[in-house]
Amino acid sequence: MELLGIFFAAFLINNILLIRFIALCSFFGVSTKIDTSVGMSFAVIFVMTISSAVSWMVYHYVLAPFHLEFLRTAAFILTIAALVQLEELYLKKMIPNLYRAMGIYLPLITTNCAILAVAFLAIDYRYDFLRSMVYSLGVSGGYSLAIVLFAYVRDRMALAPIPKWFQGYPIAFITAALMSLAFLGFTGMFGL
């Protein structure tokens, strides 16, 4: 039940994009097309799960025993960057089909704040390994939900005669504002 709570809180209530404001660059950049947003979602779920597992281990088995918690920023970013690169190389060679579907999103993910943020937050919340995995699933799921829905909404706006100064990014922000307003309805759900 607690695991479900962690997942739900990360998925909807504290949605990483609309409520926590993490990983917004890709939110606005990638959501212009439905296909790319779906591809990006899968890539994020994939990478976030692996990287949060690895960074949890790096923290708990490498940094913590030596009391080197202050190196976590450097260690995590190094780990994640190397990991993403390895995954990309591996996919490209071994599973080219998957790479074509997902690979182009991988470099975009390295600088995706969400991946690093999840690593940090899982440690700040003192989650154990299982909980941090559930948490990262919730976060990446929430990311996917928000970005795919946003892509569909933007797709519908293609024909709208939006006032000139608001075309492009400004209206995207206003849309995000209203989506975020709707997500406020989840506040306090399940006492989380």
């Binding site: 660059c25 890709s26 990638v30 790319t36 990006m40 182009i104 470099p107 975009l108």
Partner: peptide, 17 residues
């Protein structure tokens, strides 16, 4: 190399392609 996605492509490499 910032891979920021602001161009609409998924990363600098995708932009290059």
């Amino acid at each position: 190399g910032a891979n920021c996605g602001a161009c609409g492509a998924a990363g600098c490499r995708a932009f290059a392609e």
